[in-house]
Design a protein around this nucleic acid. Structure first.
Length: 722
DNA sequence: GAGCACTGC
């Protein structure tokens, strides 16, 4: 390691155990070839290409196969093509590949369509929410895991699929975990309908434990509505990038696991000698150390949130001023999810010649976004993580150390295009103390949605459901309780009819689904549709620090003294009015461009608004199909606020003498989030939609209500308490 | 006086 940039700074030690695999550069120039030939050559060069036959054989032989494929192995694009060519789509059946993220489903599908030389939507397609490119002839279908879960509600046997490949299973999103449990059941049920019954009986008595037998019976009873159907067995392939396949293998009854080499450039890992008391300061010093002493290449720094990113950006600019002019050629580019897209795009623009780019990112750059040109990664070793306390019904966002696999993922970002370096801002001994992998999301989130989905799929015994990792009993019970309070479950804990079934049909948080059903009765469904669409997206307002005052003035014209829900309706309707007036006769692209400009002028996050408009359209279709009456309460906002109180009664709070609030359900002392329009007004009684602990216990999305409405509109809950 | 990252027939 070169000497330090500024007096007596950090010393890094090199990890001797780094991977240093060498491999030829397969991206070498192939100019004389056509694009088709280039693609063929690229496919042949992927590590997975040499094991095609073996993989196909393994899928034939095993009902479930675990594939551990390192980054760059080509598993996501190639395996479905191998299976298609081997005849797994005969009889019009489909290979489904699930991804945790929309962008991945889209980009991979496009790539594979090109490799197969077919038009997207023909043999190869993708389906994600709001965007389905598949057709009757699609045989290789990329989709989000959440979408496949939704499909299972309509087709519990997933009958059109011959193979389902669950990709990126190691990420253990809540959707992946529920899907794994579901697929296990479907697979058992399908082999039950197709296999010789005797065969299964033999298996049961020979090599299955009593527990397996129970599970199997449960799986079969859960699908009894389809009994008698005949389906060929479902092949499952679980693909993971983590080195530990054991968990998946055990969960699938000792399923076989195979390993596929990756293709990554070597990344040298460096650690600090000592623990850093201030990781932001350490990051700053390391940035300048690299800038002044290392060869060309951009730097990627992982920080925990917007605030850190903005303050490091400021500090970099300050310190640059102190350097001699020739050495100031360093550009900063922040990226985090709440940043408007056009500003996010800046990280992809190459730095001008002679300049070095330093990208300050949250973990959006870990998996969701791949930035070209990164040669150096700085990893302070922290992440802001969500956790959920079922007893308090409260989410928290706290800064915690990363896991080992997360640290590996981050360092891998330096080896995409060539050999790289990763600087971990902690001693090597600390790395060993990190958790192997991040806790699965299902153990740290509110389960109401998961449970409602499972109930709709016919799983009645949630506590007995075969999760790969079971959420805590307290968490399950709390969510069952909440669903009962919302009227989705009967006294026997079964899905209620029609309310529970209607709620499960709506792709929304259960409490929002219930709000829509109630709004039909309160004659304000038009208003509630807008409200739940807006509540379902990230913050709709964007207030950059440097234009705080300007943003405040702009957003004031939307704000309602009644609270945030009415304010959201005002924003949505204003955008509608604007579109109607200004974009008549314009193309879709043109209208969207004009709307983006309107958003920018009004300090509204156009991505959030577009998302809300998409959700609104989809949900409106659903409620109309259910036969709910989409009416407006007109100017009678009292009626609408009463409906909000009836819907969100579980989240009511009363003002305390000091100006804080007491949440009635849990008794917790909470504060109104500064982003609320009621932050200063502080009404006596309010309902809210979110309770998140960050620096304080904040409630967000608030409307003032009359205290007396609670016992009137939710007597089952409030009469007992008073 | 402040917002990790994803996702949904």
């Amino acid at each position: 390691m070169p000497s330090m940039a500024q007096g007596g700074l950090r010393n890094f030690t090199e990890n001797p155990n780094q991977l240093n695999r060498k491999f030829p550069n397969h991206e070498a120039k192939v100019d004389p070839f056509s694009r088709k030939q280039k693609i063929a050559q690229h496919r042949k060069s992927l590590p997975i290409a040499s094991v095609e036959k073996r993989l196909v054989d393994e899928v034939r032989k095993n009902d479930t196969l675990i594939i551990v494929g390192e980054t760059g192995s080509g598993k996501t694009t190639q395996l479905p093509q191998f299976l298609f060519n081997a005849g797994f789509c005969r009889d019009g059946r489909t290979i489904g590949i699930t991804q945790p993220r929309r962008v991945a489903a889209v980009t991979v599908a496009k790539r594979v369509a090109e490799e197969c030389d077919v038009q997207l939507g023909q043999r190869v397609g993708y389906s994600i929410r709001f965007d389905d490119t598949t057709s009757g002839s699609t045989r290789i279908k990329y989709m989000t895991d959440g979408l496949l879960l939704r499909e299972a509600l309509l087709d519990p046997y997933l009958s059109k699929y011959s193979v389902i490949i669950v990709d990126e299973a190691h990420e253990r999103t809540v959707h992946t975990d529920v899907l794994l449990g579901l697929l296990k059941n479907v697979q058992k049920a399908r082999s039950k309908t197709s296999n010789d019954r005797l065969n299964i009986e033999n298996k049961r008595t020979n090599d299955r434990t009593l527990l397996d037998k129970d599970n199997e019976d449960r799986a079969i009873s859960f699908l009894k509505q389809c009994q008698g159907s005949k389906f060929p067995p479902l092949k499952l392939v679980i693909m993971s990038a983590s080195l530990d396949a054991r968990g998946f293998s055990e969960y699938f009854g000792g399923a076989k696991a195979v390993h596929i080499q990756g293709r990554q450039f070597p990344v040298d890992i460096f650690y600090t000698h000592y623990a850093e008391p201030d990781y932001l300061d350490a990051a700053l010093i390391t940035i300048f150390q690299i800038h002044l002493e290392e060869g060309p290449g951009d730097i990627l720094v992982f920080l925990t949130g917007q605030e850190e990113i903005e303050s490091v950006e400021r500090l970099i600019k300050e310190r640059l001023q102190q350097l001699p002019e020739g050495r100031q050629k360093l550009l900063t580019a922040p990226i985090f999810s709440a940043l408007p897209s056009e500003k996010q795009m800046r990280v992809f623009a190459p730095a001008p010649t002679g300049f070095r780019k330093v990208i300050l990112a949250t973990n959006i750059a870990e998996t969701s976004v791949t930035i070209p040109g990164i040669k150096y990664v700085i990893d302070p070793g922290f992440v802001k993580a969500r956790s959920y306390d079922p007893l308090k019904g409260m989410e928290s966002l706290i800064i915690v150390p990363t896991s080992k696999s997360q640290a590996l993922q981050r360092s891998g970002r330096a080896g995409r295009e060539g050999p790289g370096k990763c600087f971990r801002l902690y001693p090597e001994g600390e790395f060993e103390k990190l958790e192997d992998s991040t806790k699965p999301e299902i153990k740290r989130c509110n389960l109401s949605n998961v449970i409602l989905q499972l109930k709709a799929l016919g799983v009645d015994d949630i506590l007995g459901f075969d999760f790969m990792e079971k959420p805590s009993r307290a968490s399950i019970v709390k969510s069952l309780e909440q669903l009962y309070l919302l009227g989705a479950l009967t006294d026997e804990c079964k899905l209620s009819n029609p309310v529970g079934h209607q709620m499960a049909q709506l792709p929304l948080d259960p409490i929002y689904a219930k709000a829509l059903i109630l709004a039909g009765q309160f004659n304000c469904l038009e208003e509630m549709l807008i409200t739940v669409a807006m509540l379902s997206v990230e913050s709709i307002f964007y207030t950059p620090r440097e234009k705080l005052e300007e943003a405040r003035t702009a957003t004031k014209c939307f704000s309602s003294p009644d609270g945030d829900h009415l304010t959201m309706i005002n924003v949505y309707r204003a955008s509608n009015e604007f579109l109607e007036k200004k974009t008549v006769g314009l193309s879709k692209e043109k209208s969207e461009k004009i709307l983006r400009k309107w958003c920018k002028d009004n300090f509204i996050n156009s991505r959030s608004l577009r998302h809300a408009r998409d959700i609104h359209g989809q949900i409106q279709g659903h409620v109309e199909q259910m036969g709910l009456c989409v009416a407006s309460c007109g100017d009678d906002m009292l009626q609408f606020r009463r409906c909000l109180a009836a819907s969100f009664f579980i989240n009511a709070a009363l003002k305390q003498p000091e100006g804080t609030y007491r949440a009635l359900a849990s008794g917790q002392v909470v504060q109104i989030h500064p982003s609320s329009v009621l932050f200063q007004a502080k009404p006596e009684c309010i309902i809210f939609n979110e309770l998140v602990q960050t620096n304080h216990k904040y409630i967000r999305n608030i409307t003032r209500i009359d205290y007396l409405w609670l016992s009137e509109l939710a007597p089952q809950y409030y009469c007992m308490q008073n």
